[in-house]
Design a protein around this nucleic acid. Structure first.
Length: 893
DNA sequence: GAGCACTGC
């Protein structure tokens, strides 16, 4: 068990002593401490003799307490539910009395609420009992303690919270003891019931799964061993296999719809295609379009966008095989850093961001005869902007055919957006997945997930691996620890359970573990983040456990601050997750929340990215396409005016816009770079100061800095020490430059990276980015310094270049000297402890940050020392005299 | 003395 957990226990115990239920709670607290001391070996030994006595008391006391709590909680929940239902009914009545005068929005709301009302009523009748409400733990990243508590929270504590009407009270939990009991009980079950997992005893902690099957998938014909063609990427095809390829093409569900599809395309400028995984739409539809002549005999291309690079490359490979052509000829792909297409290319797969870039050179996309926007339901930022732009183009170009491919869930929204475009449904080919909900809300999903893993393992047949969706690295590591501990305790009494984890920041060599085949007579448990929802497919998964949460980035345009928050996932995501169980055969998905909450507390779809991010780059792109009326631009979901206005203000301050709001020459140059305009400005300025090489490096490195240093659990101190050797007195920008220069001096050595606890993969990515930026710099006329040999650039020149783009991000030390304040806005922020300036005493008076994130505090990540003179030199148009004066006064006290 | 889900140009 990790240090963290032990510290946490200590905290919890302290609170027990303040508890009202002094008797029971302090005893349990003691037991916990006892168990901690067993692992710890050193602390609190004096409490050991009490153990037996305590456990006995718990056995006597806890059940009665539980009964009381349970009763109180149930009555509260029932009452609350009835009240809510009544409120809903009233709202509906009001709407109904006024139906003819409702606005579109109100009408929408009315329909939504009617649906909700019906669902609840239906559910009530079905159960004939009170349906517990799903209480979402209060997740807040601003409060570390709360987050911590949530992570390690136990069931009893939450129960008590609820029974006292939301008032938080200290709680208790004999966690491991309870787990042990659960395992013991589970082990006793001999009969295997594959349709229902049901553990006797301990009623309120058990999972009694509702058998009703919610997501129904078309099971199609017998498809044993038939893989999803969209992700198959076998490399070579022999002549003998050709006929089988054609057979496979014809056997795909989409084949039966070929004529219907082409007919609809002929009749309509825009067609919405709904096709579930395995329908073959991604590989087949572009081919159909080509066969039907929309490529005009090879004069025009059929384009198909994908949100992810791997999808673009692998699908293109597959289709090249199907068309018996070499990849990069008739069939090709284009992704950043890699263009496998040529003049001959007829069918081109590309990332959505890449097509957006193509708009800049060819605003009418005249090279394309037809375009398919695949996975549109994901609504990535690029897809979203593409859809708005395409809506316009299709009107101007009747010869262009547009196909929007989406999952079922929001097809109508796309149809509405494209003037009621027709929807073509293509059934998928996936095995059925039974969805099980918990009967009662689960307060602590970590505990619940662990229990469910063992329940599955002990009651469900082998083989069949388990996939658990968690929110992040911290959770995964905590859970991995607990599971391994439990497995070790159970020893040979159960079949082997292999725990492995996957998240994007996990170094490559550790990621591969999840793809190793599970040994016979054992089971694999994969703990994953969202990465397993769409980006990575793991073979052999038959069971999915879904606690129903995601970690999401939220941007606040007013403060310019980003924060990562844990929120309930959407119904669309939940279904996507469930689908992961049905790839090898019929599967099961266990949702750790109630059916009621699925329909009432989860949003239908995730919040589109466009509403959650800094839009400055998008706005610049749109402006350069001649779209000036951004407030009235036809977004599917318009971003807030605040976001747009903030972006415009910043662009103006950077010199990308003139006072009339028109794009300047500088703005056009900035747009050439696939970067935040603040970065582009730095590059463009650096030319003047003769340091563009250094600036390019710093910018490429800043983009990757989050995953640059690797800290293995067992070698943290060593890793931190190595990291300190790169620290530069002027800050992180210069530290990153040093890392790069040292790596460059070793001729980009992998070994050097290992020695310094630096991720090679990350540096290579930075190298790619840097090369691209260098190419683009040359194109827009940034002076190249490549010929310059070993002439040391004065740091001041580098600082100047950076300040020219990042002047809005300057902060000064507060009078107290404990925090920093922005020059314009007066709120506190702090240097992140990972920064090279963190240990500097006294702290620098004025610094500039790369990003501001809200986690446990308002932290500035990647900071650089700045002189006041530079602020005056580069920020006088942005800051008022007062802003600057007060800076001088406050700093020079 | 903190801790960053996931993409993409």
């Amino acid at each position: 068990m990790s240090e963290n957990v032990q510290t946490g226990r200590g905290k919890r115990r302290r609170r027990f002593s303040e508890s009202e239920d002094e008797n029971v709670e302090s005893q349990i607290g003691d037991v916990e401490t006892q168990e901690t001391s067993e692992e710890n070996g050193s602390t609190l030994q004096q409490e050991r003799p009490k153990e037996a006595e305590n456990k006995e008391k718990i056995r006597q006391n806890v059940p009665s307490m539980d009964n009381l709590r349970d009763k109180s909680r149930k009555s509260y929940l029932k009452q609350r539910q009835l009240t809510k239902l009544e409120e809903l009914k009233q709202t509906l009545n009001e709407y109904e009395n006024n139906l003819s005068n409702l606005s579109d929005k109100e009408l929408q709301d009315y329909h939504k609420k009617t649906e909700i009302f019906k669902t609840i009523q239906g559910a009530l009748q079905q159960y004939e009992v009170d349906i517990p409400l799903y209480s979402l733990p209060e997740v807040s990243n601003t409060n570390k303690k709360t987050k911590y508590d949530l992570l390690h929270q136990n069931h009893y504590k939450q129960e008590q919270k609820e029974s006292t009407n939301g008032k938080s009270k200290p709680g208790q939990y004999a966690g491991e003891q309870w787990e042990q009991e659960q395992f013991n009980r589970a082990k006793q079950i001999s009969s295997v019931n594959t349709d229902k997992i049901n553990l006797p005893g301990q009623e309120k902690n058990e999972f009694v799964f509702d058998e009703s099957q919610y997501v129904t998938f078309d099971s199609g014909d017998q498809l044993t061993g038939d893989k999803d063609p969209e992700t198959t990427t076998s490399s070579k095809v022999s002549a003998a296999e050709r006929t089988s390829i054609d057979d496979v093409r014809k056997s795909l569900p989409v084949f039966k719809f070929r004529e219907q599809f082409l007919e609809a395309v002929k009749e309509n400028p825009v067609l919405i295609v709904v096709g579930e995984t395995g329908s073959g739409k991604t590989t087949q539809l572009p081919q159909y379009l080509h066969e039907a002549g929309y490529s005009e005999g090879g004069k025009k291309m059929i384009g198909c966008t994908q949100p992810r690079r791997v999808a673009a490359t692998s699908v293109a490979t597959r289709v090249a095989q199907e068309m018996d052509s070499k990849l990069g000829q008739e069939v090709g792909y284009t992704i950043r850093f890699e263009d496998k297409s040529s003049d001959k290319t007829i069918i081109k797969y590309l990332t959505d961001g890449m097509l957006l870039r193509e708009f800049l050179n060819d605003p009418e996309l005249s090279h394309y005869g037809a375009l398919m926007i695949d996975e549109a339901h994901e609504r990535t930022l690029s897809t979203e902007v593409l859809l708005s732009l395409l809506k316009d183009i299709v009107r101007a170009r009747p010869d262009l055919k547009l196909i929007i491919a989406s999952a079922t869930i929001n097809a109508t929204k796309f149809s509405e957006f494209f003037d009621k475009a027709p929807i073509l449904n293509i059934p998928g080919r996936r095995f059925p997945v039974n969805i099980h909900y918990t009967k009662n809300p689960e307060a602590n999903y970590i505990q619940a997930a662990i229990t469910t893993i063992f329940q599955i393992h002990l009651t469900q047949p082998l083989p069949g691996d388990i996939l658990v969706f968690l929110t992040g690295q911290e959770e995964i590591e905590t859970m991995e620890g607990s599971l391994n501990e439990a497995v070790a305790k159970l020893g040979s009494s159960i079949q082997p359970l292999h725990i492995c984890s996957i998240y994007a920041n996990l170094p490559q060599e550790l990621q591969s573990k999840i793809f190793e085949p599970t040994p016979p007579n054992s089971r694999k448990v994969v703990l994953a983040t969202n990465i397993a929802e769409t980006s990575i497919t793991i073979d052999g998964i038959a069971y999915v456990i879904d606690p129903g949460y995601v970690k999401q980035n939220v941007y606040n345009p007013l403060t310019g601050m980003e924060s990562l928050v844990v929120v309930p996932c959407s119904r669309a995501s939940a279904d996507q997750r469930a689908g992961r169980a049905g790839r090898i055969g019929p599967g099961k998905c266990f949702r750790l929340y109630t059916k009621w909450s699925f329909y009432n507390e989860l949003e239908l779809n995730p919040v589109p990215e466009i509403l959650r991010v800094n839009l400055i780059s998008v706005i610049l792109l749109l402006l350069s396409l001649g779209i000036n009326d951004l407030i009235n631009f036809d977004f599917m979901d318009p971003p807030s005016n605040d976001t747009i206005i903030k972006a415009l203000e910043l662009l103006y301050a950077l010199g990308a816009l003139n006072s009339k709001g028109q794009l300047t020459k500088l703005g056009r140059k900035m747009n050439e770079f696939p970067l935040d305009p603040m970065f582009s400005k730095c590059i463009l300025t650096s030319s003047k100061y003769g340091c563009s090489e250094e600036i390019l490096t710093i910018i490429a490195m800043l983009g990757e800095s989050g995953t640059l240093f690797y800290r293995p659990k067992d070698k943290r101190e060593q890793a931190d020490k190595k990291r300190e050797t790169f620290n530069h007195e002027l800050g992180d920008h210069f530290s990153l430059l040093k890392v790069w220069q040292d790596w460059e001096a070793t001729d980009y050595s992998n070994l050097w990276c290992e020695d310094n606890f630096i991720q090679y993969k990350t540096l290579k990515r930075a190298k790619n980015v840097r090369e691209q930026l260098a190419r683009l710099s040359k194109r827009v006329g940034v002076e190249s310094e490549i010929d310059k040999t070993s002439k040391e650039v004065p740091p001041l020149m580098i600082q100047k270049s950076i300040v020219s783009g990042f002047f809005p991000n300057i902060v000064r030390l507060s009078r107290m000297g404990d925090s920093y304040r922005k020059l314009k806005q007066n709120y506190a922020c702090f240097i992140h402890p990972s920064s090279s300036l963190y240990p500097v005493k006294p702290p620098p008076r004025m610094i500039l940050y790369h990003e501001l994130v809200l986690t446990s505090k308002e932290f500035m990540r990647n900071v650089m020392v700045v002189d006041e003179k530079l602020v005056k030199e580069f920020g006088s148009h942005y800051y008022s005299i007062k802003d600057l004066e007060s800076a001088t006064n406050k700093v020079k006290k």
